[in-house]
């Protein structure tokens, strides 16, 4: 077990249309930390997360996960990586027509044979595990409801439970509270913190609100135009840094 679970080295991502989303990014992620990435829309935050779990293919650079480079692996190995680096999304990305339970069980797809999964034959161990994590995020009683009948905050908690059934080592959260109201945002962030503390899962989250960053992050990285402009403790982000990250004239929005 190395101390650094992830090490990003000189990561570059250029989209086919020529947009350079990430320009030579390097940083390390310690096992068990709650790392928050901030920056304006379009600064490359989402691209960065999607490169780490290989939903996007990096153009160049290395991503060292548990000691091996995963930036260039292909096929079955990509799926192995994704199993260990789970992700939740701004728009939850659940399957609306399926039940909450079924959605959570989908976290097990990576561990199942194709035929068993097409007939929906999830093992009783899988079912127990899904129930356990639904309980952890506090919506066990909604298990039989259709996912699209839940509120946004509840859907995000289902998404967290789905991610947990992958038994991941890292949880990526791409603006997990950006489409939620302030009160619900705190609930969801609290569950992420719980996952981080109780299960020891390393969390890397993209966030917009600095007040949330100060409350939950153990470390912060700020991106601007695809480059890292700040790396340090949340308390170090003063007004001067704020202006440097978000541009002159920007004003902080408080969320309580």
């Amino acid at each position: 077990m190395t101390e650094n679970i992830l090490e990003i080295k000189n990561l570059v991502k250029t989209y086919p249309n020529g947009t350079r989303a990430l320009k030579d990014i390097s940083f390390k992620v310690k096992r068990g930390e709650f790392l928050v990435i901030i920056g304006l829309s379009g600064s490359g935050k989402s691209t960065l997360l999607r490169c780490i779990n290989r939903l996007h293919d990096p153009t160049s650079g290395e991503i060292i996960f548990n000691g091996s480079n995963i930036a260039t692996v292909e096929g079955k190995l990509v799926r192995q990586v994704r199993k260990k680096i789970a992700m939740i999304f701004q728009h939850f990305n659940l399957i609306p027509r399926h039940t909450v339970m079924s959605n959570v069980l989908m976290g097990r797809l990576g561990n199942m044979g194709t035929w068993a999964s097409i007939w929906g034959r999830f093992s009783s161990d899988d079912q127990k595990m899904a129930m356990k994590y639904l309980e952890l995020v506090g919506i066990k009683e909604k298990a039989k409801m259709r996912a699209d009948n839940l509120s946004g905050g509840q859907q995000q908690r289902v998404a967290i439970a789905r991610a947990l059934t992958q038994t991941p080592e890292v949880l990526l959260a791409d603006e997990p509270v950006a489409s939620l109201d302030p009160a619900t945002s705190h609930t969801v962030m609290d569950y992420l913190k719980k996952v981080n503390n109780e299960l020891g899962i390393t969390v890397i989250a993209n966030l917009h609100f600095l007040s949330l960053v100060r409350e939950y992050a153990t470390r912060v990285i700020a991106l601007k135009g695809g480059e890292i402009v700040f790396e340090g403790n949340p308390s170090e982000i003063d007004d001067a840094w704020f202006e440097r990250i978000y541009g002159a004239g920007a004003r902080e929005v408080q969320i309580h």
Binding site: L109, G110, A159, Q166
Partner: peptide, 25 residues
């Protein structure tokens, strides 16, 4: 694309993604 990303991010195969993310839609 949301559900497709959601299912792919669990480490599902292409066939599983089609069955779980696309077919219900």
């Amino acid at each position: 694309d949301g559900p497709i990303e959601g299912i792919l991010s669990t480490g599902a195969s292409r066939l599983q993604m089609i069955w779980y993310a696309i077919v219900p839609q």
